[in-house]
Amino acid sequence: MKYLMFASALLLSPLSSASEPVITGFGNFYNVPEHVSINDSTKFKIAFDVDKAAKEGEQNNAMNSLARFINMHVAHGVKPENIQLALVVHGSASVDVLDNSEYKKRFKTDNKNQNLIKQLLTNNTVVYVCGQSATHYKVAPEQLIDGVQMSLSAMTAHAQLQQQGYTLNPF
Rank of each mutant, 00 (worst) to 15 (best):
V50A: 07
D40F: 09
R106S: 07
G25H: 13
A157T: 10
D51G: 07
T122I: 08
N60P: 07
L87E: 04
H76M: 08
H90P: 00
L15R: 09
A47M: 06
K45A: 09
Q59W: 04
A54D: 03
S94L: 03
V129C: 00
S17R: 04
D49W: 12
L121E: 03
K2C: 05
F29C: 07
N61D: 14
F6L: 08
N115A: 09
A75C: 11
Q132Y: 10
K105Q: 15
N28R: 08
E58M: 09
V148Y: 11
A157E: 01
N31M: 07
V88G: 02
P21W: 04
N124M: 02
P80M: 06
Q119D: 03
E34Y: 10
K55R: 14
D40T: 11
S65E: 06
L85Q: 02
D110S: 11
E56Q: 13
H136S: 15
P33G: 07
Q84A: 11
P21L: 03
P21N: 14
V95S: 02
N115S: 15
L11V: 03
M1W: 13
A18Y: 07
N31C: 03
S13C: 12
V89P: 00
Q164K: 07
Q119V: 02
E58P: 14
E102C: 14
L4M: 11
V78R: 00
V97S: 01
P14Q: 06
Y128I: 00
Q59K: 10
T156A: 10
N64K: 03
A9K: 11
Y166N: 00
V74H: 02
Y30Q: 15
Y128C: 01
Y128Q: 00
T156W: 08
A62C: 05
L4H: 10
E56N: 11
M63G: 09
D40C: 14
T135M: 10
K2L: 10
R106G: 07
C130Y: 12
Q114G: 11
G165K: 04
A67H: 06
N28T: 15
V95H: 05
K104W: 05
P170A: 08
V50F: 08
V50I: 15
S17I: 10
H76S: 10
E56R: 14
P141R: 03
N60Y: 10
Q114P: 04
T24S: 13
S153H: 05
I70D: 02
M5T: 11
L11S: 12
A54M: 06
D146G: 04
T156S: 09
V22Y: 03
